[in-house]
Design a protein around this nucleic acid. Sequence first.
DNA 1: GGGCCCGCAGGG
DNA 2: CCCTGCGGGCCC
Length: 682
Amino acid sequence: MAHVSQLPCDGDGICMVCKENPSAEETLTCKTCATPWHVGCLAASSRPPTMADAASWECPDCNCVDPVPVSAAPGGSSDLLAAIRAIEADSSLSEQEKARRRQELLCGGAGPSSSGFDPKRTVNDVLDIIDGSLNCSFCMQLPERPVTTPCGHNFCLRCFQKWVGQGKRTCANCRNEIPAKMASQPRINSALVMAIRMAKMAKSNNAGSAHGRPQHFIHNQNRPDKAFTTERAKRAGKANACSGKIFVTAPPDHFGPITAEYDPERNQGVLVGETWEDRMECRQWGAHLPHVAGIAGQSSYGAQSVCLSGGYQDDEDHGEWFLYTGSGGRDLTGNRRTNSEQSSEQKFEKLNEALRVSCKKGYPVRVVRSHKEKRSSYAAEAGVRYDGVYRIEKCWRKVGVQGFMVCRYLFVRCDNDPAPWASDEHGDRPRPMPVVKELNNAIDITERKGSPAWDYDEEKACWMWKKPPPISKKKTSTGVDSSATGKVKRRPRNMSIKDRLLKEFSCQICRKVMSFPITTPCAHNFCKACLEGAFAGKSIMRQRGREGRSLRTQKNIMKCPACTIDIADFLQNPQVNRELMDVIETLQRKCEEEENSESEEEGERATENPGAAPEDADDDSTEEIENPEKAENKKTEDTGAETNLKSNQKGRSCDDIKAAAVVDAGVAANRGKRVKVAAAAM
DNA sequence: GGGCCCGCAGGG
DNA sequence: CCCTGCGGGCCC
């Protein structure tokens, strides 16, 4: 019994045993792994004998020589009974909620990587399908923020960080070496996140479960368009910083998620996890409009969105919550757009004040994360990703790392969809306020006084506007209401397992569902054969041959085909991610079953080829599909093909490289069309 | 990989 | 109309 119930506090400071938020005095911090533990819930034998010993105290996990897998079974039965009775007696819970909490309890409670009030993983459901093959070797639970080692083993981010935090540099499973880069900067393996979610979904669909809501998490496929470069920007000889058409009809001062009603283009809205190539493209979909500034807002009205892209050293990202730094205090003379050096203090004015308004009112603030943030495990793998809405619970000022006063904001996630890194099937539940140490030295602390405008409705079990959202003061970007476009609204698609398999588990080289998947240290996934083939002989040059300079300087560097990370060491002995492979194979079997049982229900979309062009491609796009460059040239013959090709390939960080010619051509064809439309409008 | 320097969009 | 701004292509 003893060490089974020994669990630390989670990322939000909540004790995983008693679910309370212990005060600083009741918290012990392990000297080895720096994890906080609730003293009251520690076995007596694990507590430090005296107060003086507390500073050098080592937690039960670090005290063990080996990572002893913690049993998922619950501890003492009397405790369990008491806990179940407490749930039953809680009149504030619905029957469904009670059932859910009972199940959490029986599933062994929280694992080390769960957070806040999130219900625990429905382990039993998933184990039926994937037979436990995905479990983290440390906590024996499904990894909630899975990371994959180069040797192909999967762990919770938290467990992995704890392990390397102890100075361990070998895989806990096979004792292979963990590269320094992976140890210091593990990235979430999003394919694995999807694997876990899909496995859960497949199960709950079969059981006709109450989780009826389709999980709409998408990758970059189906993106209808790209930003275009204006003629003026071309004349200036620069292909930078030009905006494209805004596709959503939400006004620029719209708060909260961009829902389907604002998306006449796709009729699905902006989905959590949606990723764009760059800030320009992100802007086009309305998630975050400014293309340089990190904050969108108006000082007298509120802030609608922020971007985390590593521009401010003080930022601190914990996924479900983060500390954001205000803007300003920098010297921008010399026509600079940004400057990493701070030279004066920040104040609550302009955009910083806009954020403070959103804090006071409790507005939902959209959050996008850029790949440029190098210090966060939650950063996008490539491009810019929409991560849902957060609320600013507090703001204050403090002296920043550069010695000047900065404005600070505590963001806590409150979205109805799960975060891109979370393998949960559901969105956020209200979670307790994280403990922020720097508040002790803060000034101008601002907290919300009244009730928040955007809040969790226990009855409906979702986040919603509890007060009417602020009235927009602006016109929509297109000036056209979505209901007035005359477009027939399509129902959002509820994807089949087959479609999702193709979308989420396709190799980034061959575009087919991966066989023998390999996860690189930069968290990209490929077929074993494709990856090996890509680096056989001259293929290396084709890989990186984006332009002449790249060829010359990079031909001897072996980089991940999906990003710019050097994976030469990894390629010496790449290991198949067997666990991911099991999941894919299981889902493929499910898929076959699904096809057999409901083949007649498959509509127009089922026959779609995985690599086919997006559905709104013109009939005459066939030629362009075969020759994307031709399509490009057709568009602007006068400026020459070279410029176009270059701009076509700019910033191809992740999904774009993996895009096979057909998809590329589909996009190109679409873009051609869009540019024509834009030109006609001018 | 770091510095330069540009157009652009939005706030006030 | 001026100021601000967590971009981005290109040069070195």
